[in-house]
């Protein structure tokens, strides 16, 4: 906020910064960008949140460039070099088939990112639709939808996910489905609460008077207002999603061998943990770092986007 300076002698006043921080924006786009900039400056002050953002960005980059970054092929076996400790040739050691653990972790980043992206694209969306519909229509629609949500909220998530995977069969897709099915209810609650705060607002009545249909009002006016809190909640939940997916993988119900999924890698290193600790330790560390990244990022986003929560 101190960017505004009264000294005209400043050599090069940051033009774009002034443009962003002006209190008289000339266009809608400028106002939006200005708000985004204000949010970013607030976010930037939280160093832990920035660290979280960097971790998540690193995950994306590693996943995108996996074949380039990985020193070895993730499935390349070398039975002469089984269970080798970390060394110059294999920075994080090798597993029971002599595969390079670092390379498998790098390729596993793709699986983790895929799981996170799929769950983030489905569960909050389902919750958003259910929550906004319940909040906007009220009456019996609200009662029925929220009863179902409350019931689903009272279920134990991990155990149900286990049972779903048992029914659908082990595999990474089914793990994603099971996680998504069990994680939509909180989003519906949040979306409903947000909807209730704006349902009676004048701009909604104005839109309705102009003849906008319910669908149009929900899609165009209500849903955008729910996005901020949903993003925060989704980011915070992603750490839990990563941990659940890894847990399913660890139990042998998620990604199947030889896929380099981090939870499954821990499971395969389990029998060697007392002697060749790195086989199980390294994938766990990767899970830890990535889910910490999401937690830090979500925590920082909550402060910026949703300042109501203390």
């Amino acid at each position: 906020m101190t960017a505004r300076t009264d000294t005209p002698s400043a050599p090069r006043p940051a033009g774009w910064r002034d443009w962003l921080t002006t209190d008289t924006p000339q266009s809608r786009a400028q106002a939006r960008l200005g708000r985004a900039w204000a949010g970013w400056t607030a976010f930037r002050r939280n160093r832990l949140a920035v660290a979280g953002l960097l971790i998540v960005l690193a995950l994306v980059i590693v996943a995108a460039l996996a074949p380039v970054l990985a020193p070895h092929h993730p499935y390349a076996q070398d039975l002469n070099n089984r269970l080798m400790p970390p060394s110059a040739a294999h920075w994080l050691g090798t597993d029971a088939f002599g595969r390079d653990i670092l390379s498998r972790l790098i390729h596993g980043a793709r699986l983790t990112l895929m799981i996170v992206a799929l769950v983030a694209a489905t569960a909050p969306l389902a919750g958003l639709v259910i929550g906004t519909a319940a909040g906007y229509f009220g009456g019996w629609v609200d009662t029925v939808l929220m009863r179902i949500t409350d019931i689903a909220l009272a279920f134990p998530k991990l155990i149900l996910a286990l049972a779903f995977v048992a029914a659908l069969g082990p595999g990474i897709e089914n793990a994603v489905i099971a996680i998504a099915i069990t994680s939509w209810p909180p989003y519906a609650r949040i979306a409903r609460a947000e909807t209730l705060t704006v349902r009676r607002a004048d701009f909604i009545s104005a839109a309705r008077l102009q003849g906008a249909s319910s669908l149009r009002i929900i899609l165009g006016h209500i849903m955008p207002l729910c996005i901020a809190s949903l993003i925060v909640r989704t980011t915070l939940d992603m750490a839990g999603v990563i941990l659940t997916a890894a847990g399913l993988g660890f139990l042998g119900l998620g990604a199947q061998p030889p896929l380099p999924e981090w939870g499954a890698m821990i499971a395969s290193g389990r029998q060697y943990v007392l002697e060749q600790w790195w086989v199980a330790a390294m994938p766990g560390l990767a899970i830890f770092i990535v889910s910490l990244g999401f937690n830090l990022l979500g925590d920082g986003l909550r402060d910026v986007l949703d300042p109501k929560g203390d």
Partner: peptide
């Protein structure tokens, strides 16, 4: 304490168990 809480929420519990046994 907030950071410790975030750390606790980020660690895979089964992995922590294995490491604790180790």
């Amino acid at each position: 304490i907030r950071l410790l809480g975030l750390l606790g929420h980020s660690v895979p519990i089964f992995w922590l168990g294995l490491m604790a046994l180790l």
